[in-house]
Structures are given as C-alpha cells and as structure tokens.
Design a protein around this nucleic acid. Sequence first.
DNA 1: CGCATTTCATTTATCATACATTATGACAAA
DNA 2: TTTGTCATAATGTATGATAAATGAAATGCG
Lengths: 248, 248
Amino acid sequence: MFQTSNALRRSVHSQVTDRVGSSIVRGEIGVGETLPPEMQICEMMDVSRTVVREAIRTLTGKGLIESRPKSGTRVRPPEQWNQLDPDVLRWHLETAEIDRYLAKLFQLRSAVEPAAAALAATHAGEDDIARIRAGCDGMDAAKTNEDFVAADIAFHQAIYFATRNEFFWPIAQMFEITLRQSFTIAAPGSHRPRALREHRAVLDAIVAGDAEAAREATVVLLAHSADDLVRIRGREFETASERDKRKR
Amino acid sequence: MFQTSNALRRSVHSQVTDRVGSSIVRGEIGVGETLPPEMQICEMMDVSRTVVREAIRTLTGKGLIESRPKSGTRVRPPEQWNQLDPDVLRWHLETAEIDRYLAKLFQLRSAVEPAAAALAATHAGEDDIARIRAGCDGMDAAKTNEDFVAADIAFHQAIYFATRNEFFWPIAQMFEITLRQSFTIAAPGSHRPRALREHRAVLDAIVAGDAEAAREATVVLLAHSADDLVRIRGREFETASERDKRKR
DNA sequence: CGCATTTCATTTATCATACATTATGACAAA
DNA sequence: TTTGTCATAATGTATGATAAATGAAATGCG
C-alpha cells in the first residue's frame, strides 16, 4: 500500500548509471571524449569500483560508451546509441529541449501507429481486443484527467501489443513515456467527445478486421492528437500540412 | 542450459552475457523463473563473480531480467524487453525461427521507412543527400553481390539518418542486421536494374524535397523488396495484398 | 635522420574475499 | 488468524591484488 517512491531508495549503481548516462546524453562529455578513469569516478561519487564498473557495463550495453584498456572509456557517436532505450529516452527528456524531443518522438509514432493498427486488425486475438475495448471504456468512464490519460495510454499500448509483433512493443513503451510527459501540465479536456468517437472508430475497424479502415482511423486520430500537442506544447508539433494552412 | 558458443576473442563478460541472454531469449528460462544464483553461474561457467554480475547488469539494462536480494534474478515478461536492442535482436535471430523474426522486422521496416523517406525529403542536408547518392552509385558500380548489398544497406541507412530524427536511427541499425541476415544465402541478382531505378526514384524525390513522392517511391521499393524476400526466404514475407493475388 | 623494436606506464579486465543489506520463509507469540 | 521476530540465502557493495592490453616514450639500428 504505502509504496515508497523508489527514487529515494534506488540502488547505488542505478544512481551512478543515471548520473553518468545523463551527463553523456546532455552532451557534457562530448562524443569521442573519455570519461574519467574508474578510480577517479569512484572518488568523485564516493562509491566502490564495483558500482562504477557495473554502471559502465550498463551504459556500454546501451551503446553510449565503449572502453578499452589503457585508452579509457570513450563516448560513442549518438548514431550508435540505443535511442529507444527507456533510460536513454528519459535522459533526453530531462534536458531543456523537451519539446524538441517530444516532437521527434511524435514523428516516429505517426509513422508506426497507423501500421500497428492495420496489423492489429488482422492479428489481434480476443484478449487483445478486450484490452483495447477496456481502454475505450476507461476513457469513457474517466472522471479525472489523470484517469482519462491513463486509459488513453492503455488503449494505444493495447494496439501495439495486438500486432503480435514484439518489435513494435518498444515503440509502445516509448510512447507511454512520451504521452505521460506531454500532458503533465495541461490535459486536453475540451475535445474529449471527439477523441472518444475517434478511438471507437479505430476499435471498430480492428474488431471488423479491416486493416485499411484501422490505418485511416488512426491517421485521423493522430492528426487531431497533434493539434492538441500544438495547443499545449507549441508549434514544434505541427505537421507540414498544418504549417501550410497557417501560412495562408 | 547455457549453451556454449564459439566466441573467439571477445571479453569474458561478453561471452557470459551472450550465453545467458541467448538462453533467456530462446526461452530456456521461462518468464518469471529465476536464474541460478550468481555463485552457481560462476561455477558453471568457471568465471569470477565480477564477470557474472556485470553480465547480469547488462541484461538488466536491456530489460530482460530484474534481481532482488534473497528472491533472486527473474526473467521479465518479453513485453518489457528492449526488443530493438542489437544484442536482443541477434539472440532472436540465432533461434530456429529466423524467418519468423525477419518477417516481423520487415513489417516494422515497412511501417517506418516510407515515413523516414518523407521526413528525409524535408529535413535532409547536403551531406545526407551525398550519402544517399553514394549508396545509389555504389549499387550501380557493384561487381559482386556483397558490394551490392553493402551499398544497398548504406543507401537505406542514409535515409534514416537524413530524417535528422535520432529516434529513427535504431530502426536503421535493426535493418542493417536484418538485411545482412536475409541475403547471407542468396542475393537478388536478377532484379538489379529495376531495384536501381526504384532507388534512384527515392533519391530524386528527396533531392526535390517532395515528401509525398519520396514516401510513395519507398512503398514501391519495399513491395518489390518483399517479393525478393518471399522468393528467397519463403511465404512468411507476403503482404496481405500478395496473399490475395496468389489465392485467385 | 628514419624506421622498427622494445620497454614502460596507464587503464581496463578479471579474480578472490569480506562484509552489508534485504527480503523470504519458518516459527513463535498475541 | 494475525503479528512479530529471526535465521537464512540471495544480491549489493567494498577492497586489494593480479592479469592483460595498448598507447606512447625510449631505444636500437641501418
């Protein structure tokens, strides 16, 4: 019940991983530069070599660094980072340029989610559909904005799972982080009826097994979702067609 | 349990990571089950506890496992794995069901790459375009199938980078692994003229800054690429529309 | 001087051991 | 049944020692 915030009681090596990883992602240690030697990091953070080494292994596993004897531990070019790794993502979103990153994540989502819905229409099982429907119903029944957003997230995640393609799942994870971040400040209360209708349209298409309808319904949904994001976070989220509209 | 592989000059902890990670991905240690205790793994593989712990950290970072004192180290549900992590991907492709996984990866690629090309059309810089063109030229000049495939990979990767959106890059990485695997046995020599023409079409659309043309050209390219895959690897790669065609 | 070779020092890689921390399961007490 | 205590087993952390690798300086030689 009284679940303590695990931010305070996280293991030491996680904290070190966070500090080092974060400082790499925010560019404090430029690409190609070397981290301080193990021993030095130990002193700086007042932890044992065990902890530092394990943190370095974790970061190596995420593609952020590589280490060789004598030459030290260097930061690899960002092209080789596992940018969709939840931790890397989090470190990105901690920076000052949140909106830039949220916009980029939305670009990826716009690419993937219509296809995911189409796949869901042809691959979803009973349980998948039940989860998607539960998301819709949850949005319907939501009293608070928090409940609404939570149900919204559940709905979209269920679609990714319904593809029965595990390589779509990390995108869903990414998307959860994104959406949660997007609406921490303001939540889209006004367009709820329309949003609900559009979510139902996706659900219906999937239930009917109509891949094309599911894809198109999702495109519509995402377009309006982009509108909300523009309203809430700013113009970074505009699509090309919207920019055109505004210019006229 | 931990099947030995013939790793040659890789570090010890990488080997241990591979053996444990691989056996998890191939399902030898079911979801929710616990790994043998650290000390036991040490004995089984004849390595120090340091190495085992670092391997476990790496796998934890990839979302495969989580460990708590006393209760042990458990395998997390696959929904939480970083499925697009290069190592996880590799462990998947080591299984007997390669074609299944290649097909799923191709589904993701089909979703992402048209959007990537569209973004490239509006975001690519001079250097990006140069790299894409170099890919085309390389395919043109290729004498061997290896050269051809290498240039092909370079071409597609360049498109992902040209999006200027780092969250598309991991997909490019994934795609490299995929394509290399796909054509290890047979290479598509016959359709080279057509393939070249279609690649040029994508390039031209990007140079012209025409996002829609780039998207459509990529869709065409991928459709024919799927044909090749069906020819080489089997029917798992058929798209829905192709299945329809065959049924008639 | 130019070039190959050797030596050396620095840093990571691995090993071994000890101790700390934490959660589980058993058992006792209320 | 509930609650509390405790032993225990597993991971978490710390430390010192040694091995291996490698970049750079020193050396030797033509």
